[in-house]
Design a protein around this nucleic acid. Structure first.
Length: 772
DNA sequence: GTCCAAACGTGGTCT
DNA sequence: ACGTTTGGAC
């Protein structure tokens, strides 16, 4: 925006006293409590530059950990600019990539090779499923995703399989008994496959350091200065990692904001911030409370929202900027109406030059599923956009299919890759054959590929299956040799050509065209891939990496890269993304959508103070992404999970003081919202921007066209769940045994203390939660 | 045994 | 609206 003063940048004299203190801090632990938009990235990068330039610290003494590759890349780039050259040898990356890099060097200690595979979330779940099936665990009562979650929690708290067994020895509940059984089997299976999952990348290096002080010593001596961004989102494993590496020199700088802690569900532990000073009593604490990003109006809203949280360090962001536009609050009848308005508003802002570039605009939402309507609306008006995050590029089916072949070339023991590639394209190798192969592999302790190679003419499978296996293993053998001769780009191109994948994909519909394009993009990405770029820097002090091929490195970065990292900042596109993905970013103009109780905050958080507070922090993160313009919108009715849900204005929106807002409701031809109590805010008059009457008409038509089914559910009511205690007017209290049906037909089976089991229609029985 | 189509269940945020 | 599991045809 032309009418705003640029934030101070660049040299040390543009820093405020607190920032300067942090930048010039030399030795000892430093905790920087940095509010949103207070210039923490600047402080981090300038401190690194300062250490190198002023104190003569060698770059390879520095380790900086961030949460996304994008943040790491930006940090490196900015340091490069400040120094005038690359901080060659410094490790700047995500905790996960740093962990992977360490593990690569010490893989043999874990029975892995340095070419180990990194399983992504999808592979990880499949593997849990497979292990459970192989051990005949009933997945009806305790599903794979539950098991995975519990295992992941354990790993994030550095609890090994045997530790888990001991910790839950006396427990009888099914989930813990299942995990006691599955966790060690799952870990054995990963080892057999020469693989780690995401959580291992954090946990295993800690394990290594704790059992091998010599190795730890290598890293302690090398990394004299540690810097951590987004510290509020670190988990226990990450805390321990830092504690171990920093133990010798204690030059640990962490930057975080407890108000922006939004990854509790992933094991982030707020105690890491709160206990920092306990672990390091000599800590210097710096608070950055001046915001250089947003207008006072936007900050006022953010402060008003976050103030309602009880669990937080008291602070208030200040700014010296001039007042800005009021926050625009809009109510819509349906999600399509909301999306239509957002698209029109984007077109209007760009058309009137109030916002100069599409890339200055972000549209945020709570769940990925919400992106669809917004995409449709933007496409209708030919507004260029991209989705950051969402279905990540490397997680698309067609991409994973191609990568599966490469993974198998790089790591012949990668069974998940084998399963994926062997019958794609169809080779007549079905479930039965795979089952048989699995048993063979198990007996001889081989990978599936090896087992398939040895299967030869074997008797117990059909001739066509045997032929398919032979064709497949021959192909893999051929490309294994080829992989030594050519780069990844050529390799993929030849493979895709031989499998005739593009034609295969294109042959099934318009979806297939997209997929074919993605594969093409993968080919060109691989062609440009330059391994030297990735492992940033030289190696000393016996920390030399094993020899890895370009293919190995390509695969490792593919596993750790997300869609967010691929984003090209020069492209002029509106950004659509979840609020989680928006963390750390800023935009002149932000739309937050879907602000309904039950969606944002999600219904599952409504009856738990901790998770409601996390939702509120997420809301705070969303608001504080905006520099000048912020709009908050919600829809009274929304398709969700295949059903139309009724919603009302989010409590978060209602917490924003009216003096900061300008909002109107659109006229409502079809329905009354009278029952929504304090819900809607209806200030202002007629609502729709008069100038754009024609387009408004379009949207309302779309609005009306959306069918409103009978089976509406109130999305802000957390549904009753099994095991919950409830209260009935005549039967007294009881325990919920089960819930069936949807919407107005939800039936609940309750075991009442007084009268035993009854099946009730929830709508009529009016059950209440028993809080006593 | 493999493949396709229809029923089924399930649905939060991410490295 | 989606992917995964299940049933039936080849």
């Amino acid at each position: 925006m032309p009418d705003e003063p640029p934030p101070p940048r660049g040299t040390a004299h543009s820093l405020n006293p607190e920032q300067r203190f942090a930048v010039e801090h030399m030795r000892g632990p430093l905790l920087v409590l940095a509010g949103a938009g207070s210039g923490k990235t600047r402080v981090l990068t300038m401190r690194v530059a300062h250490l190198i330039k002023v104190h003569g610290v060698l770059p390879d003494r520095i380790l900086a950990a961030t949460f996304t590759n994008k943040a790491a890349g930006e940090m490196r780039e900015r340091i490069r600019t400040l120094l005038g050259h690359d901080p060659f040898g410094a490790w700047i990356g995500t905790f996960h990539s740093i962990g992977a890099r360490i593990l690569r060097r010490h893989a043999e200690q874990f029975g892995r090779s340095s070419r180990f595979t990194i399983l992504d979330a999808d592979d990880n779940l499949r593997e849990v499923k497979r292990v459970m099936k192989a051990r005949d665990v009933d997945t009806k009562l305790c599903g794979p995703s539950t098991v995975r979650r519990v295992m992941s929690d354990a790993k994030n708290r550095l609890i090994s399989p045997s530790g888990f067994r001991q910790a839950h020895r006396g427990r009888f509940d099914l989930v813990h008994r299942t995990v006691i059984d599955i966790y060690p089997a799952y870990q054995r299976s990963l080892q057999r496959q020469d693989a780690f999952d995401f959580d291992d990348l954090l946990m295993k290096p800690v394990e290594l350091f704790e059992r091998d002080p010599d190795t730890l010593g290598l890293y302690q001596r090398r990394f004299e200065f540690l810097l951590v961004d987004e510290y509020q989102d670190t988990n226990r494993a990450q805390f321990r990692f830092l504690e171990l590496v920093a133990a010798a020199h204690r030059n640990l700088m962490v930057v975080g904001d407890d108000d922006q802690s939004i990854y509790g569900w992933r094991g982030a532990d707020i105690r890491n911030i709160l206990d920092f000073e306990k672990t390091y009593p000599e800590t210097r604490v710096v608070r950055l409370e001046e915001n250089y990003r947003s207008t006072p109006t936007i900050l006022g809203a953010a402060n008003a929202a976050i103030r309602l949280n009880r669990d937080r360090k008291e602070k208030t962001l200040r700014t010296r900027r001039p007042d800005g536009w009021p926050i625009d609050i809009r109510e819509f009848r349906t999600e399509a109406g909301e999306a239509g308005w957002v698209a029109q508003r984007v077109a209007g802002l760009i058309g009137s030059r109030k916002v100069h570039h599409y890339r200055d605009i972000a549209v945020l939402y709570r769940t990925n599923a919400q992106s669809r309507v917004l995409e449709d609306a933007l496409r209708d008006l030919s507004i260029p956009y991209h989705i950051a995050g969402g279905l990540r590029f490397y997680e698309r089916r067609e991409i994973k299919d191609v990568l599966a072949y490469l993974r198998l070339l790089s790591n012949p023991r990668d069974d998940s890759a084998f399963r994926r590639a062997v019958n794609y394209p169809r080779r007549g190798v079905g479930a039965r054959t795979l089952e048989w192969l699995g048993r063979q592999a198990e007996e001889e302790n081989l990978g599936l590929l090896e087992a398939a190679v040895r299967a030869g003419p074997a008797g117990r499978i059909s001739a066509s299956a045997a032929r398919g296996l032979r064709r497949f293993t021959a192909l893999v053998a051929r490309y294994s040799e080829r992989a030594c001769e050519v780069g990844v780009g050529v390799l993929i191109r030849e493979l895709v050509g031989e499998l005739d994948l593009l034609a295969l994909l294109r042959s099934d519909g318009p979806e297939g065209m997209d997929r074919a394009n993605n594969v093409n993009e993968l080919v060109s990405g691989a062609t440009q891939f330059d391994a030297r770029d990735r492992d940033g820097g030289d190696e000393r002090e016996g920390l030399t990496a094993d020899h890895l091929t370009e293919l190995d490195l390509f695969l490792q970065q593919a596993a750790l890269f997300s869609e967010l990292d691929r984003h090209d900042p020069d492209a002029d596109l509106v950004t659509l993304m979840t609020v989680h993905n928006a963390k750390g970013l800023e935009f002149p103009c932000v739309f937050m959508t879907g602000l309904e109780d039950g969606l944002f905050p999600l219904s599952r958080s409504l009856d738990d103070r901790d998770s409601l507070e996390e939702e509120r922090r997420l809301f705070y993160v969303g608001i504080t992404r905006a520099e000048h313009r912020l709009s908050l919108s919600w829809a009274g009715s929304r398709m969700r999970a295949g059903r139309r849900m009724v919603g009302r204005c989010s409590r978060f929106v209602r917490a924003i003081p009216a003096r900061l807002t300008r909002g109107d409701s659109i006229p409502d031809p079809g329905r009354r919202h009278s029952g929504w109590g304090s819900g809607g805010r209806r200030r202002g008059s007629s609502g729709w921007p008069a100038r754009r009457g024609g387009r408004a008409g379009d949207t309302r038509q779309r609005d009306r066209a959306a069918p409103v089914g009978e089976e509406e559910m109130n999305q802000d009511l957390a549904p009753l769940t099994k095991g919950e205690r409830v209260l009935h007017r005549t039967f007294g209290s009881g325990t919920v045994l089960g819930v069936s049906g949807y919407g107005r037909d939800v039936r609940v089976m309750v075991d009442f203390d007084s009268v035993g089991q009854r099946k009730l229609v929830a709508r009529i029985a009016r059950l209440e939660r028993d809080v006593s």
